[in-house]
Design a protein around this nucleic acid. Structure first.
Lengths: 219, 219
DNA sequence: ACGGACACGTGAGTC
DNA sequence: TGACTCACGTGTCCG
């Protein structure tokens, strides 16, 4: 490809920055066109592949950026850099808020609750989640809880239990496989939900008022 | 710049994809070097500026991306696209967590509370405040609340009430005249305080355990 | 004209 | 080898 003779009459007005023209030039001026065309065509095809793949990559990245723009307080004309700066701030902010708040929940409350949320940390490759279950106390709760954790292949890093006035709250720190982390969260959430439903089904009326929340338009 | 004669002896091994070489070539072969050098130098300088500015821009963006990598459960070798995908997920996740949590602020807690604070917003010239009252529920609470608001000439934009286990929380969005806004806040605060004192004086002992809430260091 | 921000095509590297 | 990501330099548009 190098040190080849160049025709004096050739038009130098071609765009030297665009290798396409170079390839075309080679394609039309080589004497032994039969053998070379094959490789040149393959090179062109590879180049087009590369070009379009790169375009798709850019679009993928930009689509995520656009998605982030909708999640943050900023319009569609904010810089990529500024956007990412805001994202960093927001993530830090939300991280701290949730960590502060979730530390308060150790004692059982009067309402049934389930929370499963990502701590963001990881334990040798596995994501760590914090699961909290607050409900009426009963003897088979712990065994069922363990059964759920085992069936979901979740490793329990830490378990905390508190009981007060017949009610109990269990706070678990569990590690989930990174690949199935999202599914694990939802499965765990649903499993705990059904676990809770099984206990509330007997005496639901008692706690129904917990959901009595009204919105009053005054003025 | 176009259609100029090319020396047959020149080394064609130069990188045609790099316009630097083209500029250098032009720079060294033009005959009327005096007039052209000025513009060529300026063009080169502009190009370098552009080049370095673009580099700085890339570095800015990438540094934010690296920062995000430290905030998320992922190593330094994860894709830009995958990283951003995870960021989107995380932001959504945290957003929902915090919104769930702040919704709990509308539920009555077990301790009596009064908060009156400025939202910073304004409604046709009047400042908007957010007032929250959490106490034992009783039938004459709402009438007395309305009486207070009327006597202070506060316009109620929005009222939200929740009851749980005999306790209630009222969150009000009120607009105060701009001139008397400071006095209005204090009056409202004092009025709510006396309103609360009237109810707590009868049965304070019952709720004392509600404040027994401990913070345990996890992790 | 100047700088900032963007999309693009391309060379280089990795797996 | 091909499929992939990245950094780079460039052309181009906008304020």
């Amino acid at each position: 490809m190098h040190h080849l003779a160049m025709d004096m009459d050739m038009d130098m007005n071609m765009d030297m920055g665009n290798p396409h023209h170079l390839l075309q030039f080679l394609h039309t001026t080589t004497t032994a066109a039969t053998a070379n065309n094959y490789y040149q065509d393959r090179a062109l095809a590879a180049m087009n592949n590369h070009k379009e793949a790169e375009k798709r990559r850019r679009e993928r990245i930009n689509s995520h950026l656009d998605h982030l723009r909708t999640l943050l307080p900023c319009n569609s004309k904010t810089d990529k850099a500024s956007l990412l700066a805001k994202v960093v701030e927001r993530v830090k902010e939300l991280k701290q808020q949730t960590s502060e708040i979730t530390e308060m929940e150790t004692l059982p409350s009067e309402s049934d609750e389930i929370t499963v949320l990502s701590t963001g940390g990881d334990c040798d490759g596995s994501l760590v989640f914090k699961a909290s279950l607050c409900c009426e106390d009963r003897s088979d709760l712990i065994p069922e809880l363990i059964e759920i954790l085992n069936s979901l292949h979740l490793k329990t890093l830490k378990a905390e239990m508190a009981t007060l006035g017949g009610r109990t709250r269990n706070v678990l720190l569990v590690a989930a496989d990174k690949e199935h982390s999202i599914e694990s969260i939802h499965f765990l959430q649903n499993s705990l939900k059904s676990l809770l439903d099984r206990s509330t089904s007997t005496d639901r009326s008692k706690r129904r008022r917990a959901l009595d929340r009204r919105l009053l338009p005054l003025t």
